[in-house]
């Protein structure tokens, strides 16, 4: 067993080296060519975006009404590990067949791609509640924006201080 794995080492090294070369080439390709959105696979790298750009892309020029007590946003004040930041969005907004929360957007301002998740509800859910664990790159505001079925937007926002970023190098 020991002997055979020893024998494999040179092979593995050259393989790793090959991998490294492939990585560099891919990086160079990224510089030169911008892949078209349709052709790109689902897991392809999305371009970086500022939070303003995200908000414009998602909502255009629609106004974001302050949510007040309609949306309760639960986040830690200080997140020691940016890789796992629990978030809870609880709202008292109506959830009836013709007036309901269509979507909740979770957006963290300082992330490379600010949109964390978008939750599309149906009235079957009974109420608009959602909890997940987020990755946060840096300290900054995290917003939960609720979009009603008639298009009204409500925004709740809280700042989270991140000790160690969770989005890798």
């Amino acid at each position: 067993m020991g002997q055979s794995s020893y024998g494999n080492i040179p092979e593995r090294r050259s393989f790793l080296k090959l991998l490294g070369v492939a990585g560099v080439t891919a990086g160079a390709a990224a510089l030169g060519i911008v892949p078209s959105l349709q052709a790109a696979p689902l897991g392809a790298v999305q371009p970086e975006e500022t939070v303003e750009a995200t908000l414009t892309r998602l909502f255009g020029s629609r106004t974001l009404n302050p949510a007040g007590d309609k949306i309760k946003l639960e986040l830690p004040l200080i997140a020691e590990n940016g890789a796992v930041v629990p978030i809870k969005v609880d709202s008292s907004l109506p959830m009836t067949a013709n007036n309901y929360v269509k979507s909740i957007y979770i957006i963290s301002d300082k992330n490379r791609r600010p949109l964390n998740a978008k939750v599309n509800f149906t009235p079957e859910a009974g109420k608009a509640y959602f909890a997940a664990n987020l990755r946060l790159g840096k300290s900054g505001n995290v917003r939960a924006i609720a979009e009603m079925s008639d298009g009204t937007l409500y925004q709740a926002m809280q700042e989270v201080k991140v000790t160690v970023g969770g989005c890798g190098g």
Binding site: Q46, A83, V84, V85, K88, S108, N111, R112, R113, L115, N116, A117, K118, V119, N120, A125, G126, K127, A128, Y129, F130, A131, A132, N133, L134, R135, L136, G137, G166, C167
Partner: peptide, 16 residues
Amino acid sequence: VETTQSVSQNPLFAFP
């Protein structure tokens, strides 16, 4: 839910 890479590893979701 439309999720992105900025959701943690081994993601946990809660919903009503």
